[in-house]
Computed example of a mutant assay.
Amino acid sequence: MSLFIGLMSGTSLDGVDGVLVDFWAGAARTLSAAHVAYPAALREELMALQAATPNELEREALAARQVALVYADCIEQVLAKTEMKPADVRAVGAHGQTIRHRPELGFTWQTLDASLLAELSGIDVIADFRSRDVAAGGQGAPLVPAAHHALFGQQGSTRVLANIGGIANISVLHPDGHVTGFDTGPGNVLMDLWIDRHLGRAYDDGGAWAAGGHVIPGLLSSMLLEPYFAAPVPKSTGRDLFHQEWLQRHVANHGGAAPQDVMATLTRLTAVTLANAIKQYAAGTDIVYLCGGGAYNDTLKTMLAAELGHQVTVETTAALGVVPEQMEALCWAWLAFRFDAREPGNLPSVTGAKGLRVLGALHPR
């Protein structure tokens, strides 16, 4: 066996997903999985750290320790579902929690006390995967297309994997082995902000609230004018752009709009920007596989299917044998597997880096 744990906490800030994966003989077999939610106070602090705050350095360091505690809990739960012990695991691939992503300024920052995590888990921890790609002139994101290509690429057909977390991104696996991938724009981030503000809920379960609203054409059109959507690839984004102020600026220009109609419009925004990216960069594909929390938003799936047209089937990655919410954690386990072998984990065609690079920094147990 060749065991690695992948830990992923995305821009939704809901907590950490963990998987234990066996990469024996090059295949990926998920043995167990767990999700640990962030305590409310930690989620609130991580949200605050998305922008400049007083005493920021100390607050970030303390949050990094708290994130490590949640990660350690997730590792314990993943192992408890098997007969494996920490000594059986080669390494943990830990993403950390993104609080800044500014590749145009030469940096990206995922907060996590990786040394504490190694101390608590008794397993080698590999973290800070994005920085080396940024150092090589890349975006540092998305990194999942490399794993998607290695694990799900298929000669002779074009496959599209669309990850809808807080931010949405696509991996286009071309039949000749070429890979295209980038962040398409907001996934759930704006929808989550809006429903939290108006209903006090973390997310729109199944897209039920959006389903009862009506899309506001003028609002949708104004949001689609955001320059990011028309920017050339490679590109990546995050809460540094798509945040509460961005949302409020657009909604303010449509005073009196019903909150439920705004929700329907935000859902359509994610569907349209995803569909536009797929139609531009994956023309001819006949199937799109969804993963991430957005894969469970039935209203979003219906809107996306309508935008893509009847010739394209929209499924979840369950059809590929991977539970949608476990896909990113699986990719981070793969990145740890690649680091352990000192093999590259990025794709310059996706991130724009100068070349292939081994990604990550080792924190020995």
Rank of each mutant, 00 (worst) to 15 (best):
G166Y: 04
A361Q: 14
R43L: 01
A333I: 09
R268F: 00
V67W: 05
R59C: 10
A61K: 10
K354Q: 14
G137N: 08
P234E: 03
C331F: 13
G185A: 06
A72P: 08
P175G: 05
V350T: 13
V215F: 03
V350S: 08
V160T: 02
A168C: 10
G122A: 08
G138A: 06
G345T: 06
L3K: 05
Y71D: 13
S157F: 01
Q139P: 12
R43T: 08
L161D: 01
I5G: 01
P259V: 02
L42V: 08
L290K: 07
H35N: 09
H243I: 00
L161S: 00
L225A: 13
A135H: 05
S171Y: 12
D124E: 14
F339W: 15
S115Q: 11
H101M: 11
G140C: 10
A353E: 11
V189F: 07
L220D: 06
R239V: 06
L356E: 14
D113H: 07
H363Q: 12
A318L: 07
R357A: 14
P142Q: 09
W334H: 12
E343Q: 15
A258Q: 15
Q326D: 11
E58C: 09
L199T: 00
R338A: 07
L330W: 15
A91T: 09
N297L: 06
I123Q: 06
K301W: 00
R338N: 01
A341C: 12
P217N: 02
R43E: 12
G206Y: 09
G355N: 07
D113C: 09
D196Q: 15
S115L: 05
T180V: 15
P145V: 08
L62C: 02
Y289C: 01
V172P: 12
T267L: 07
T237S: 15
V36T: 15
S236P: 13
D205G: 00
A40T: 13
H148I: 00
N55G: 13
A318M: 05
N169P: 13
F337S: 04
A336Y: 09
A258N: 15
T98A: 04
E245M: 02
G93N: 09
H310L: 06
A127H: 14
T265P: 13
E343L: 15
I99E: 07
E226S: 11
N163V: 12
D176V: 01
E45I: 03
I216H: 10
R201P: 00
T98V: 06
A341K: 15
A257P: 07
G185F: 14
T267I: 00
I126S: 04
M327A: 14
V21K: 02
P364E: 10
T53R: 15
G166L: 08
G93P: 11
G352F: 03
V288I: 13
G181T: 05
D14V: 04
H214V: 08
V89C: 10
K81M: 06
R130K: 11
F337C: 13
D17C: 01
S12P: 09
A275H: 03
A162R: 03
R239A: 05
G165S: 04
H178Q: 12
P186F: 07
N253C: 13
H214C: 11
D298P: 00
A341D: 13
H310R: 14
G10D: 11
G93L: 12
A168N: 02
G294N: 01
G293N: 03
A147G: 13
P86S: 02
A353M: 10
F107T: 07
L224S: 05
I126T: 05
Y289I: 02
V179F: 08
R65K: 14
N169T: 06
D17K: 12
A34T: 01
